[in-house]
Write a protein that binds this DNA or RNA. Structure first.
Lengths: 341, 341
DNA sequence: AATTTTTATGCAAGCGCTTACATTTTAGAT
DNA sequence: ATCTAAAATGTAAGCGCTTGCATAAAAATT
């Protein structure tokens, strides 16, 4: 019915204002190149007609869209949400629009999403973590789309990144756990395949443990999906071993919360019988009881800096370099002294 | 540097395959209108060149994008995430791409996001809740973009919707609370201004209370922001009144979790001294202790049906009508008998 | 084998915008 | 008042794709 009512075009505005389409375009894109009088007339016409530029035409003619794409592994939990929120706010302030997509931690889906976002004219892309098929980086290179890698920081990768040192942060956490006297330590982590952040965190644990004179190979370790129930099940499994670990280091807060819940269900006291730690310091960490010891990540700062950096890359304004965001330990009730040792 | 390396166009593919651009286009969009032999040759050329259609050009020529836009109030907590995930999965299965944006519960931001998504060629839009400036609906009408309203269901609104009856669900919850003997009931809700879901939930409470012979006006009620800390503060305030309420009904789980946390901090036993209920049945509800009584909403089902419905609207295949999703009470430990009455 | 119908492909006209270049107007200098 | 430089505006050529219509090829019918 209404689908035929024509949406006004640049041409309509031009006619209404008695100028050429070029002038209208300039009024909208570089107002200072047009004299005040004309500009006002044009803008009035724009208002009157309710004109909105056609994105496709704009994209086609200008080859830029002021759009940034971001692909995160998941939106189901809040891990990325806070950072993304900050990222998007800053983009918005700078006149960019954010296109979000989630990959469900599946590389093939991520690859597809990347192509989709690029095809849709994203001027730049935010991706989580370095590790992915090199072809993808080649493709982006070919398409001339700059990529910023976030949520991780480390040398040895060609991509610009904004994030924190997953390895060092986890090493610090492990040292903290060790300093409480724990020696039988178990680990619950996300799947390490294709996930450099998980790998780095595991390396951090191994490093700290080695320094303390323990054999990293001896560490009981379970890799599982990133959800509360999986964390709970993994914890269950760990608690069936004998002797039981006195501390369980979890790769993130979601897993830790699962462990915490199962501990309660099993009647295992935390931290008296077993200590549990997380990573990310989600809001969750302060809500559960006992409150969860975790690694605090300044998500807001990371999102903000990621936006600044990526815009600089897109606009090619000055040199762009990777930026490291600091983390710190948030020691709370779920970590206590090792029992009986 | 690489920004000049040309991306292949339809024309390049056509030349490589020795056919016209029209044939290539048809191979891609309606393969059965092209004979097998030709099709294979063309697809091979597409592969070889690594051709991807230019979205802007496609949008311009075809006037559809197989893109659906969704604007939710927030992505920071998981309330909408689960439903959106299901929504997006179904869209993906049907060959559509989802563009997400969040409005931070601010109507003006939402209006802007709507314009952005429409300008970007969204074929249809998913919005949360009915209540918004009528001009927005007019605008969408003019642009010929169908809208589906989700997370609420109710008559008296012209828009098609997929969701649940917020009023009835909350009335049921309130009845449940009343049946536990509570008579001094307080309410913590999100801001009702511009939010029909909040208003409906409040009406549900009032209705149930009135049936029980109490005066809804007497209900202590606080409206606050949708975050844990706000919920905690509101709870604090309620606990300072005398006599204290024996039950606090919260407008959603996030607020309820805040209340729960503050109760613990204040040394107020839940549910012995005060009962607390939530709404939405987020994963959180089963993680906190005591576990939270809430209204269970089948988010996955809602997301799925929303996708089906919106696609039907976009493709104009057959009649489209609103669909109601059922909710049910999830009674857990945070609700107990009224103390001392 | 000739004719008609059906199917496959090509041709070319836009879609609405930006921008290099050409032209006109205005301001500044003489 | 005249000429020159600078500023404002107009002209028109694409950008890469889809699709109605025309044409050519193949299949079906007589």
């Amino acid at each position: 019915m209404d689908k035929d009512r024509q949406v006004p075009t640049l041409n309509d505005v031009a006619r209404a204002a008695g100028v050429s389409t070029a002038t209208v375009s300039r009024c909208l894109n570089s107002p200072d190149r047009v004299v005040k009088d004309t500009r006002e007339r044009v803008l009035k016409a724009v208002q009157a007609l309710g004109y909105t530029p056609n994105f496709g035409a704009q994209m086609m003619a200008a080859k830029r869209t002021r759009t940034i794409g971001a692909i995160v592994p998941t939106l189901e939990n809040a891990i990325f949400a806070r950072g993304l929120q900050a990222f998007q706010e800053e983009l918005h302030r700078r006149g960019y629009t954010l296109l979000m997509a989630s990959s469900a931690y599946a590389p093939e889906i991520e690859a597809e999403q990347i192509r989709t976002l690029v095809a849709r004219g994203a001027d730049g892309l935010l991706l989580i973590g370095h590790e992915r098929d090199p072809q993808i980086y080649e493709y982006l290179q070919t398409q001339g789309v700059p990529v910023l890698v976030a949520w991780t920081y480390g040398t040895g990768n060609p991509q610009t990144c904004v994030g924190f040192d997953n390895r060092a942060a986890m090493e610090a956490m492990t040292q903290e756990v060790l300093s409480h006297g724990h020696r039988r330590i178990a680990v619950i982590s996300g799947r390490s395949a294709g996930n450099d952040r998980v790998k780095l965190r595991l390396k951090g644990i191994a490093a700290a443990v080695a320094v303390a004179g323990l054999d990293p190979q001896q560490l009981q370790q379970i890799e599982t999906d990133y959800d509360v129930d999986s964390g709970a099940d993994a914890f269950d499994q760990l608690m069936r071993s004998s002797p039981r670990p006195t501390a369980v280091i979890c790769g993130n807060d979601v897993l830790a919360v699962g462990a915490l819940r199962r501990a309660k269900e099993l009647g295992i006291a935390v931290p008296e019988e077993v200590s549990i730690t997380g990573f990310d310091d989600m809001e969750l960490a302060r809500i559960v009881s006992p409150t969860l010891t975790s690694v605090h990540v300044p998500h807001h700062e990371m999102g903000l800096k990621a936006a600044e950096t990526l815009i600089a890359m897109v606009e090619k304004t000055g040199g762009v370099e990777s930026r490291e965001i600091g983390t710190k330990l948030a020691i709370r009730a779920s970590l206590g002294p090792a029992q009986g040792s």
